[in-house]
Design a protein around this nucleic acid. Structure first.
Lengths: 233, 233
DNA sequence: TAAGACTTTTAGATTAATCTAAAAATATTT
DNA sequence: AAATATTTTTAGATTAATCTAAAAGTCTTA
């Protein structure tokens, strides 16, 4: 309707998967990382490309007004860039819920599949998927799922490494979730929701002696306990 | 394991989405259409590209041994090309089942979404999705779903236009399913499984006077009745 | 603060997928 | 079987996304 009266042109810009992935990488290394801006190098490492390729893409994303970019000064997302990024994260995490809740995948098997599914473009699909899953707020790794407006639920947590001997907490998420960590946790029977009691703190290597769900006891390295996000109970 | 003893190198060739779409188009215009070979022009129309682009792609698919191609002679799928094509069709139709059965989409809303989902690459995902859906043999349009080996269930049918007055049939599929046809059928309350009785044949324009599910009566053009695949009951 | 180290950008190529225009091959019709 | 029409291929460009090598900018540290 070419009328002079319409006020808001919600331009639906079709992005390539690559562009989408760059926006996610920028989100991760600026806002999510707590820094204001992402650096070219960080993005290159995240995307597994040469820094020169990143510079090139930054120029293009900047032209499309998805990022704020000044040469040599790092990069941050504009409002519309942030909207795209959080929508992708929302889609990724909803699909992860689907894979675990409905198709019985395990939490260490879903990332690569969700990485593909997140690029499927259909707002109605996501609306219905979200409803079908019961509007989950967290994904199978405990990561918060942004809502339609890009608001991300806050989690209050303390890392297991910061619990005092005697305290018990419930696992609500992971700081990072590399495959190796998830496989290890599976082996010792720790998952989202598991209760862990700190029995002893070992000063020498900063490891913990813990009890899992009031049953098995065992040791846990500092590196692992740093990655476990707990709610004290 | 670089051993001289392994015999079968199941080369998993990663194809681009575009290449995959060409293979589907070739399948549609050769085997599925009952012809031996697909022509450059037919593929160009199907893919919405210039014939020159098709020629280019044919050269590349031929190099990858996915098609049999001789200049000016048309093109057919090799065994591995056919395997890729039927897997795509399988994925497409399983996703369509998911969209309708689980997310309550209607049959005229699912094609474009399934067109994207079919390119997600994860055999395990499809294995589980198929199981989750109860191993359906036909999709929401009544189209047969190829099995893992590319075997396509046969349907026996007669078009509604070939039923005699007095005969009743059940709708089991559509010859083609453009949006306009599906929307029309929705409006007159005809869907897969609907029973249709032919009451009269109108010689002048070859239209039919029919009764739907022993209730409403109405007329149907030849063009529509040619597209309705029925099982006589 | 100047030298060296590191980061980032520029320059120039490459590949996949596309286009238009023109040439070549095949098919159809008189 | 010529002439004409249609289909298909070739030739030469273009765009997105990537690369390597080299130049430019910024940071760190001696």
């Amino acid at each position: 309707m070419p009328s002079p009266y319409f006020t808001k042109l919600t331009k639906i810009m079709l992005l390539t998967q690559t562009e989408e992935n760059y926006l996610k990488a920028i989100f991760k290394h600026s806002e999510e990382a707590g820094k204001g801006v992402a650096t070219t190098n960080a993005i290159a490492i995240e995307m597994n490309t040469a820094p020169a390729s990143v510079t090139d893409m930054l120029r293009r994303l900047s032209e499309k007004k998805l990022i704020n970019y000044e040469k040599y000064k790092g990069v941050s997302l504009t409002d519309s860039g942030r909207q795209v990024a959080t929508e992708l994260i929302r889609k990724h995490r909803l699909w992860e819920c689907f894979l675990v809740d409905k198709l019985d995948f395990e939490w260490d098997e879903i990332h690569d599949i969700a990485e593909q599914l997140e690029h499927v473009n259909s707002p109605e699909l996501i609306r219905r998927l979200n409803e079908y899953l019961g509007t989950p707020r967290f994904d199978p790794h405990g990561d918060p799922i942004p809502d339609e407006h890009g608001n991300i639920p806050e989690r209050e947590f303390i890392t297991l490494s910061n619990l005092e001997p005697g305290q018990t907490g419930e696992l609500i998420g992971l700081q990072e979730h590399p495959d190796s960590l998830m496989k290890f946790l599976k082996k010792i029977n720790v998952a989202i929701g598991t209760k862990i009691t700190v029995l002893e703190y070992n000063e020498f290597d900063e490891s913990l002696y813990i009890q899992i769900n009031n049953e098995k006891k065992g040791g846990l390295s500092r590196k692992v306990s740093d990655n476990l996000l707990m709610k004290v109970i």
